[in-house]
Design a binder for these strands. Structure first.
Lengths: 157, 157
DNA sequence: AATTATGTATCCGTCACTGTTTCAATTGCT
DNA sequence: AGCAATTGAAACAGTGACGGATACATAATT
């Protein structure tokens, strides 16, 4: 069998994202903090990057995804940049996680041996458990909005 | 700045594990299914690996961690292998996740700009959100035991 | 002694990510 | 018209972790 990744059961972009969710969340919070809610208040990727701090290209890679998800808008050219298209109080963090293609990365259940009824059930059960954990994380994030990041007491997030 | 990983804010083994949790969970379920609850019913890493299927060494790398966590015991030599040291009904999946060093891998909040009070708060808030999601996932997993994987209806996991 | 196993170390190929550079296209300003 | 600012996308390199494979010392059974 070819090396790498336990055959090919890996879906979900296993092992990817990493910093995409934090960067996206930070960027949205920064936009909200700066009241960037219209085109004439656009924030450049350079300024966003400086606030992390990270590279402007990394920021643009993320803002492009947020724009595709309809959370922000961007405009090229002088005075361009990104601004919020949705009220920050209405942007839930699970939406952000989905926008950047994230999941909890607990892995993917290996297939199990064919034939044995129990052997077939185990992978399904493991999958179900992983999915349940993933859903729980999303549900928890859905109770936090971008506004909450700025306003709610940290202990109550 | 040196390339890779946004400076060094990455802790938590970011991006690691992947298959460790599924493999560990599958292995424990298999041991429970085979009633491997004592030394004389030990299952070899070769058999466990065949049930995934994956490589025996990969299995041993995981079972070694489970043994260190006190969930199973292993013994070398002919007739050796692994067996459960704890009742499968008492092994919660969050314990398994911790045993293999897992987390939800949502990333690590970038530091943010010094000086600005809001700029300092954002990273803390992002961190808090990630931690909350991680806890939610662990909490959900804590409500599933290895026995449940074999016995409980899949929809009720 | 021969056999069966674990655990660990080492090496390799793969994969995704971050950071960087480059470039076309877009927009505002003078 | 021309220039400066800015996005988005592509291409490239370096890093890190993982899964798979092999090898080997150690341990336990027969």
């Amino acid at each position: 069998m070819a090396p790498g990744r336990l055959c090919s059961y890996v879906s979900c972009n296993a092992m990817s994202d990493s910093q995409k969710f934090p960067v996206a969340t930070h960027a949205l919070a920064y936009l909200a903090h700066k009241d960037a809610t219209a085109m004439d208040r656009a924030i450049s990727s350079a300024e966003l990057a400086a606030s992390m701090p990270t590279n402007p290209v990394v920021v643009r890679r993320v803002t492009a995804m947020l724009a595709k998800a309809g959370l922000i808008d961007t405009r090229a050219g002088a005075g361009g940049g990104a601004w919020l298209k949705v009220d920050p109080g209405a942007i839930r963090l699970d939406t952000v996680l989905k926008a950047v293609g994230g999941c909890t990365h607990l892995g993917v259940a290996p297939p199990g041996t064919k034939g044995c009824p129990v052997g077939e059930r185990i992978p399904e059960a493991v999958s179900a458990a992983i999915t349940a954990a993933d859903l729980a994380a999303h549900e928890r994030l859905s109770r936090i909005t971008v506004s909450d990041l700025l306003n709610r007491p940290l202990e109550k997030l």
